[in-house]
């Protein structure tokens, strides 16, 4: 083991990156262009800024990657951000629960939404699209009811530290990104559960025939997605010092965009976290670059849509070329 460890590590890294060489190239070109035409892009401050902007999306996209590899989709994560963010704010400001238990409770609430999704999807044949569309609306509604359509402000130092603090001079969101990516990466590549996600997504029936408990796998994947979204909710609320029912609106689409850009197949069974992370960075850099260039936000939507289409087209033609 010790002898080829180094060799093995680089081979593994190369194997991880190789399939994404195209999109990684695009990202590098994008960065070079932005460095040339704007002064502000290639500065440490701005790069940390990009990381901060994508941190919420990384949380959602990590969960979404697992869900999509499983052959599902989770539209409820944006609303889960609102539920967890608003309720956490309420727990602290209105109820007076200390920050840490309030945060834990709010994350668990996100998990509860995931659990509900998972239970329905795994026990019935109702498509995940429909189930999570429903819980998306329910979640948004809960946030509205709980906040009575008003903004709850929070002024708890621990709570704001979670979103804006520094640890040893490193912004805390960078640490969070590393942790969540590492955890998801470990799940997907180093656990039996991870392998089972690919198997169930690739061929659910065959997975069952191979002795895999497909319902259990499905349940846990949605549960994780909910928990991750719950954490994302805390991040979002903490960064704005408020709980608003509109938190995370449309966030599920950003997550799906990143996953698709990363080359994960919407039909399930195929996909990598490496791709998703690159996808998140591309979305982040693109938005950041357009902001720096002063592009109107309406145009940003159009550009983002075009980029996704472009990415899936390239993927489509690549597949068509290889398969005869």
């Amino acid at each position: 083991m010790g002898k080829n460890k180094k060799n093995g590590f680089f081979t593994n890294l190369w194997n991880d990156i190789k399939p994404h060489i195209g999109i990684l190239g695009a990202l590098i070109v994008l960065c070079i262009i932005l460095t040339i035409i704007t002064d502000a892009f290639m500065t440490p401050r701005n790069l940390f800024n990009v990381l901060r902007q994508i941190s919420v999306n990384v949380f959602l996209a990590c969960g979404m990657t697992m869900v999509i590899i499983l052959g599902g989709i989770d539209l409820s994560v944006g609303s889960t951000i609102a539920v967890s963010g608003c309720l956490c704010a309420g727990f602290i400001t209105k109820v007076g629960i200390p920050a840490i238990p309030a945060i834990v409770l709010a994350v668990l609430l996100g998990g509860l939404i995931g659990l509900v999704n998972g239970l329905i999807v795994s026990r019935t044949t109702i498509p995940p699209f429909i189930v999570t569309l429903a819980t998306m609306n329910i979640g948004r509604g809960i946030a509205r009811v709980y906040t009575a359509n008003k903004t709850i402000t929070i002024s708890d130092p621990i709570f704001s530290f979670v979103g804006t603090g520094y640890v040893f001079g490193i912004p805390i969101h960078v640490i969070f990104i590393i942790i969540i990516v590492a955890v998801t990466g470990l799940i997907l590549s180093r656990t039996q559960f991870g392998r089972h996600i690919y198997a169930v997504g690739g061929n659910r029936q065959a997975a069952i025939y191979s002795g895999i408990n497909a319902s259990k796998v499905t349940l846990f994947v949605f549960l994780l997605s909910g928990l991750f979204a719950g954490m994302a909710g805390i991040l979002t609320a903490s960064r704005t010092f408020t709980g608003q029912y509109s938190l995370g609106e449309g966030a599920e689409m950003d997550a799906i965009t990143a996953v698709v850009l990363g080359g994960t197949s919407m039909s399930g069974g195929v996909g990598t976290l490496t791709g998703t992370v690159i996808g998140c960075v591309i979305v982040g850099v693109l938005n950041n670059g357009m902001n720096l260039m002063g592009v109107d936000s309406s145009w940003q939507y159009i550009v983002q849509g075009v980029v996704v289409l472009l990415a899936v087209f390239i993927d489509f033609f690549k597949k068509k070329g290889l398969k005869f």
Binding site: Y198, G202, N203, A206, S265
Partner: peptide, 9 residues
């Protein structure tokens, strides 16, 4: 195809 293979793996 239906009950045995993970075709894309």
């Amino acid at each position: 195809k239906k009950l045995g293979l993970f075709l894309e793996q």
